[in-house]
C-alpha cells in the first residue's frame, strides 16, 4: 500500500475517477470556445479601445470636423470607412495579438489536447470574430444613424456580404500573423499594419482621394477593397463591383493557404 493510496479516500471518494470518456457535442464545444473568446475580446481594455472606442472617435470626429475634404453628407463617406476599420481591428489586429499571446500561454496546445477537432479550433475563433463584429456594426451603425447616416437600403445586403468577406480575408491574415511570429513581434506588426491601413489603405481617405500610385496599391489591398466596396454599396445602393469581391477573396485564400502551412501551435 503506498502513501498515495492510503489517503486517496479522504478527498476523492472511491469511484470518482472511474473512466467514462467521450467527445462533447460539436455545438456545445463551438458555443463554449467562441463564447470564451468573444468574452475575452470584449473584456480586454486594449482590444475594446481598438475595436470600438477608436472607430467611434473617428466616426464622430471625421463627420463633425472638416479635416478631410469629403462630399456632403460627410457621414455617408465616413461611416463605410469606419465599418471597414472595425472589421480590420477585430478580425486582424485584435485576433492576431490574441493568438500570439494565446500561443505564448499554451492555450492552443491545451485545446488541441482535448477532443475539440482542429477545424473547430479555427471555427471557434472565426465565430468569436463574427460575434464581436456584429456588436461593432450595431454600435457604430447606431451612432452613425444618430449623426444623420442614411445608408442606401438596397445596398445593405451587399454591405453584409462584403463585411463577411472582409472578416474572412482579415481573419486569415490575422491567424497567419498571430500563428507564426513571437507574441511581442505580432503586437508590433499588427498595430503598425492597422495604422498604415487606416491612413493609406482607403479607410480615412477614400481610395480616389489618395495620390495616384498609392491609390492603385490601396485598391488592391483588402482594406481598400472593403472600404470602397462598402462606400459603393451603402452610398449608391448597388453591387460593389467584381474587383472588390475578387480582391477580398484572393487575400482570404492566399492567407488561409499560407496559414495552413506555416502556423505553429506554440
Amino acid at each position: 500500500m503506498s502513501g498515495a493510496d492510503a489517503t486517496a479516500g479522504t478527498r476523492f471518494p472511491v469511484g470518482t475517477f472511474v473512466p467514462d470518456p467521450g467527445r462533447g457535442r460539436l455545438g456545445a464545444m463551438l458555443v463554449a470556445q467562441a463564447g470564451v473568446e468573444a468574452r475575452l475580446a470584449l473584456r480586454n481594455a486594449e482590444q475594446v479601445l481598438l475595436t470600438l472606442l477608436i472607430p467611434l472617435a473617428l466616426l464622430v470626429g471625421l463627420t463633425l470636423v472638416d479635416v478631410v475634404a469629403l462630399p456632403a453628407p460627410r457621414v455617408a463617406s465616413v461611416a463605410p470607412g469606419v465599418l471597414a476599420l472595425a472589421v480590420i481591428s477585430t478580425a486582424f489586429t485584435s485576433q492576431a495579438i490574441a493568438l500570439g499571446f494565446d500561443r505564448r500561454y499554451g492555450v492552443i496546445r491545451r485545446l488541441a489536447a482535448t477532443a475539440l477537432p482542429r477545424w473547430l479550433l479555427v471555427t471557434g475563433r472565426l465565430v468569436a470574430v463574427l460575434a464581436v463584429v456584429a456588436i461593432q456594426l450595431v454600435v457604430l451603425g447606431s451612432v452613425a444613424a444618430a449623426l444623420g447616416w442614411r445608408p442606401a437600403l438596397a445596398g445593405i445586403g451587399w454591405g453584409l456580404l462584403l463585411v463577411g468577406l472582409g472578416c474572412a480575408a482579415f481573419s486569415a491574415l490575422g491567424i497567419l500573423l498571430g500563428g507564426t511570429l513571437r507574441a511581442e513581434i505580432v503586437l508590433a506588426v499588427a498595430n503598425i499594419v492597422w495604422f498604415a491601413l487606416l491612413l493609406g489603405g482607403g479607410i480615412v481617405l477614400p481610395v480616389t482621394r489618395l495620390p495616384a500610385p498609392l491609390a492603385t496599391v490601396a485598391g488592391l489591398l483588402p482594406s481598400g477593397a472593403l472600404a470602397e466596396g462598402l462606400r459603393t454599396a451603402l452610398i449608391d445602393g448597388r453591387f460593389p463591383g467584381l474587383l472588390s469581391v475578387l480582391v477580398l477573396l484572393s487575400w482570404a485564400f492566399v492567407a488561409a493557404a499560407a496559414a495552413a502551412r506555416l502556423i505553429r501551435l506554440r
Binding site: 470518456p21 473568446e37 468574452r39 473584456r43 480586454n44 494565446d102 499554451g106 492555450v107
Partner: peptide, 29 residues
C-alpha cells in the same frame, strides 16, 4: 493531458477555462 506548464488564455478566469475544457467531454466531472 496536462501539458508542461499547463496552458490557458492569459485573460481567462479559472472557472471559465475549466468549463470550456469540460464542454469538450461527453460526461465531465
Amino acid at each position: 493531458v496536462m501539458p508542461q506548464g499547463g496552458g490557458a488564455y492569459p485573460g481567462v478566469r479559472v472557472g471559465e477555462m475549466l468549463r470550456l475544457i469540460a464542454a469538450c467531454s461527453a460526461r465531465p466531472l
